[in-house]
């Protein structure tokens, strides 16, 4: 609190602040501007800092939760689990890394796929879980994505993907590289069948995912200030031995260079994507009715 506010609010303000009885965990610091944020308020704002507009990273479940209608959700391809075909081992076994990631996130791998609706428009939506192994794409991510897209293709309902990833999963070596071809192939099927695919890039999107499913949307969208690119900034700096310009690979850069169609703030994502998809499919929208009291 600034000295000016303190004066405005009168004496005693400072003291009250110091003896705050707010329970632990009700406040959170914005990772960018460090402003203390009241959690319930932050959540209502889709985890976007009301002070600096920073789009705080959120998990796949929450992402889909704030995007889809509350009713009629069905998880797809949840039975697809990661496979350690190479028995990859570095300082730790990949198998153990997977178990640790599963424990930490409560997810089996880094992609969640749901069939649901957006303002009553049926669709399939997928989201990357960045907390799971950096959202990296191995067999399970590629397979879940592909199976989910297949549902879109079969039912002729739009397909949406929120990506957040470091790229291909090194520990699955070439099998993960092949997921680039696999996911791109199914997207091409959607394209030929006239089924809309909207790709939404959220911070960050790099490597093998950027160079496949993320850039292939009929419409490519990015959240404000998200980073997306093929090579990471460190690699580029090492290669060209130059400092990168400010804002390099950020959403605004991507828009300026024609890689994406639009930058959409998280709180407007639902409305924007619904509007686009309604026009692309010729299907009407309907606001979901808030159910206030359970029967």
């Amino acid at each position: 609190m600034s000295w000016l506010e303190r004066i405005k609010k009168g004496p005693g303000t400072l003291k009250k602040d110091r003896t705050s009885t707010v329970p632990e965990g009700l406040w959170r610091k914005c990772p960018l501007c460090n402003a203390p944020l009241y959690r319930p308020e932050l959540e209502k704002n889709a985890d976007v800092c009301p002070k600096c507009d920073h789009h705080i990273r959120i998990g796949a479940r929450r992402r889909l939760d704030i995007f889809l209608d509350t009713e009629g959700r069905q998880e797809l391809a949840a039975d697809v689990l990661p496979v350690d075909r190479l028995k990859f081992k570095d300082t730790k076994k990949y198998k153990d890394r997977l178990i640790a990631a599963q424990k930490e996130t409560g997810e089996k791998d880094a992609l969640i796929a749901l069939r649901g609706s957006l303002k009553r428009l049926p669709l399939v939506a997928t989201a990357f879980e960045f907390a799971f192994h950096g959202g990296s794409m191995g067999y399970a991510v590629g397979e879940r994505f592909t199976r989910a897209a297949k549902v879109s293709l079969d039912e002729k309902i739009p397909f949406v993907c929120f990506s957040a990833t470091g790229g291909a999963r090194m520990q699955e070596a070439l099998i993960s590289l092949m997921q680039m071809a696999k996911t791109s192939a199914i997207i091409e099927r959607l394209r030929l069948a006239g089924v809309p695919y909207i790709s939404i890039m959220t911070d960050p999107v790099y490597g093998g995912v950027s160079a496949s499913l993320a850039m292939l949307g009929d419409i490519n969208i990015a959240e404000p200030n998200a980073r997306a690119g093929f090579a990471g900034p460190n690699i580029i700096e090492q290669t060209i031995r130059q400092k990168l310009p400010p804002g390099f690979q950020r959403s605004e850069f991507l828009l300026e260079h024609g890689a994406i169609d639009m930058i959409v703030p998280r709180v407007e994502m639902r409305d924007t994507v619904a509007r686009l998809l309604s026009n692309m499919t010729g299907r009407p929208l309907q606001e979901q009715v808030e159910i206030t009291s359970p029967a």
């Binding site: 091409e188 496949s212 292939l216």
Partner: peptide
């Protein structure tokens, strides 16, 4: 990156 290396790769795959 400015000219969309990711997109160029992805498009070929598709």
């Amino acid at each position: 990156e400015e000219r969309g290396i990711s997109e160029s790769i992805a498009r070929n795959l598709a």
